[in-house]
Amino acid sequence: MTPPLIAVLNGPNLNMLGLREPAIYGRATLDDVEQICVQAAERLDVAIDFRQTNGEGELVSWVQECRGRARGILINPGAYTHTSIALLDALTAVALPVVEVHISNIHRREEFRRHSYVSQAAVGVICGLGVRGYALALTALADIIMDEDER
């Protein structure tokens, strides 16, 4: 049996992890995050499709591609969290479980970062736990998928 696919989608500037504001985001790189996800996926018996883009339209297109292909979406939308109604609309349209992840605690940061459009489409949000939040989000999504399969 083919393991269920979870899309792991990363938005703008996450390609700069390890370089960009390490006091906020830590020293782990995006490659390190991908390895965390690969290891978690193996443990959870799920497959992942790990991607990063700086483009809003590309991120929206990737979300749309998930319909009929993936069983869930783990998304760190970066700054699009706070600005993108288009991303919210795409996440809502695909009708898949979504877990939103942020490396930093967006609620302890600037006021404009405390609002998330994406949260309106998410079953859950993990923020402030560093890159380990990705493994936690994958665990949550694997549990949700397993629950769906048992119904």
Rank of each mutant, 00 (worst) to 15 (best):
M1A: 15
M1P: 14
T2H: 13
P4Q: 03
L5V: 13
L5P: 05
I6G: 04
A7M: 11
A7N: 13
V8P: 04
L9Y: 06
G11E: 08
G11D: 11
P12T: 07
N13F: 00
N13M: 05
L14G: 02
N15W: 05
M16T: 12
L19M: 15
L19E: 15
Y25S: 01
Y25N: 07
G26W: 04
A28L: 10
T29N: 01
T29A: 04
L30R: 07
D32N: 14
D32L: 06
V33E: 09
I36G: 09
C37F: 04
V38Q: 14
A40H: 12
A41Q: 08
A41V: 08
E42Y: 08
V46F: 09
A47H: 11
D49W: 15
F50A: 00
F50G: 00
N54R: 01
N54D: 14
G55V: 03
G55I: 00
E56I: 04
G57A: 14
E58I: 11
L59R: 02
V60F: 10
S61K: 05
W62M: 14
V63A: 07
V63D: 09
G68M: 06
R69C: 07
A70T: 04
G72K: 03
G72Y: 01
G72R: 03
G72S: 08
I75F: 10
I75P: 10
N76R: 06
G78D: 02
A79I: 05
T81Y: 07
T83D: 08
S84Q: 07
I85N: 12
L87R: 07
L88Q: 07
A95Y: 00
A95E: 14
L96G: 10
P97A: 01
V98R: 12
V99G: 11
E100P: 12
V101H: 04
H102R: 11
S104Y: 09
S104G: 03
N105Q: 06
H107D: 12
R108F: 09
R109W: 09
E110C: 02
E110G: 05
F112S: 03
R113Q: 03
H115N: 14
S116E: 06
Q120A: 13
Q120V: 03
A122N: 05
G124K: 00
I126S: 02
G128A: 04
G128E: 01
G130K: 07
V131W: 06
G133D: 02
A135F: 01
A137P: 08
L141F: 10
L141I: 03
I144T: 13
D149H: 09
R151D: 14
R151C: 13
